[in-house]
Simulated scan of single mutants.
Amino acid sequence: MSILYCSLDAKEFNRIAACESAKEIWKKLEVTYEGTNQVKETKFGMLVRKYELFSMMPEESISKMFTRFTDIINSLKALGKDYTNVEHVRKILWSLPKKWEPKVTVITEAKDLSKLSLDELLGSLMTHEIT
């Protein structure tokens, strides 16, 4: 309990001061920051929906799109949902606008998507965006 006490600021300490065990402190902090199971499931559902409907916004750069995508997949991973690298690569390629179709075709025909990392894909798309 003292390790938990030492790691919290005054505001957080006041929240858990009445707790009688480390487990009780941990549960209270968990609900405070992660929410109840119902909140977690709602967040999970919203994130899965964001992932499924993900697409590049008009006038958005590749790097900004990747940042948004990474935020979604990291949040999903924290809630226990982990997609494969191939699923991520395909999702990015499918989320690009129609003007990117020739580049998507080149990537899918020239590269083995099961071995293509997100970083390699990002590099390839950024190079194309610059040119």
Results as ranks from 00 to 15, higher is better:
126 M>T: 15
116 L>F: 11
31 V>Y: 08
12 E>D: 13
107 I>G: 07
79 L>P: 01
66 F>M: 15
41 E>S: 10
100 W>V: 11
21 S>T: 15
55 S>K: 15
19 C>I: 02
10 A>G: 01
49 R>Y: 09
125 L>C: 08
4 L>E: 04
64 K>H: 14
45 G>T: 11
47 L>N: 06
105 T>V: 14
69 F>K: 07
51 Y>T: 05
57 M>C: 07
8 L>C: 05
81 K>S: 06
50 K>V: 01
76 L>H: 07
114 S>F: 02
106 V>Q: 15
11 K>M: 03
86 V>P: 00
9 D>K: 06
89 V>H: 11
119 D>S: 12
12 E>K: 04
8 L>H: 02
94 W>K: 12
8 L>Y: 04
121 L>C: 10
1 M>H: 03
120 E>M: 11
76 L>F: 03
86 V>C: 05
12 E>N: 09
36 T>E: 11
20 E>G: 15
3 I>M: 02
16 I>C: 08
111 K>E: 14
127 T>H: 11
120 E>H: 05
72 I>R: 03
87 E>R: 09
85 N>C: 08
118 L>R: 04
106 V>C: 11
70 T>G: 02
85 N>Q: 15
71 D>P: 00
31 V>M: 02
55 S>N: 10
83 Y>F: 15
128 H>T: 11
68 R>N: 11
77 K>Q: 12
15 R>W: 07
70 T>R: 15
46 M>R: 12
45 G>I: 00
62 I>Q: 09
52 E>M: 13
13 F>Q: 14
35 G>A: 08
39 V>T: 14
122 L>I: 03
78 A>L: 03
50 K>T: 05
68 R>I: 02
85 N>V: 07
120 E>T: 09
10 A>M: 10
33 Y>I: 06
82 D>M: 08
84 T>G: 06
58 P>Q: 09
112 D>C: 05
22 A>Y: 01
53 L>I: 02
23 K>C: 01
74 N>R: 13
76 L>M: 14
88 H>L: 05
61 S>G: 14
33 Y>N: 13
25 I>Q: 14
70 T>Y: 07
42 T>V: 07
60 E>C: 04
106 V>W: 09
48 V>D: 03
74 N>L: 13
64 K>V: 12
31 V>C: 00
84 T>W: 02
63 S>V: 13
51 Y>C: 03
24 E>P: 01
60 E>Q: 15
39 V>E: 15
17 A>D: 09
71 D>N: 13
4 L>M: 12
124 S>C: 04
46 M>E: 14
45 G>V: 00
118 L>Y: 01
24 E>Y: 00
74 N>P: 00
106 V>P: 00
129 E>P: 04
47 L>H: 04
8 L>P: 03
127 T>Y: 10
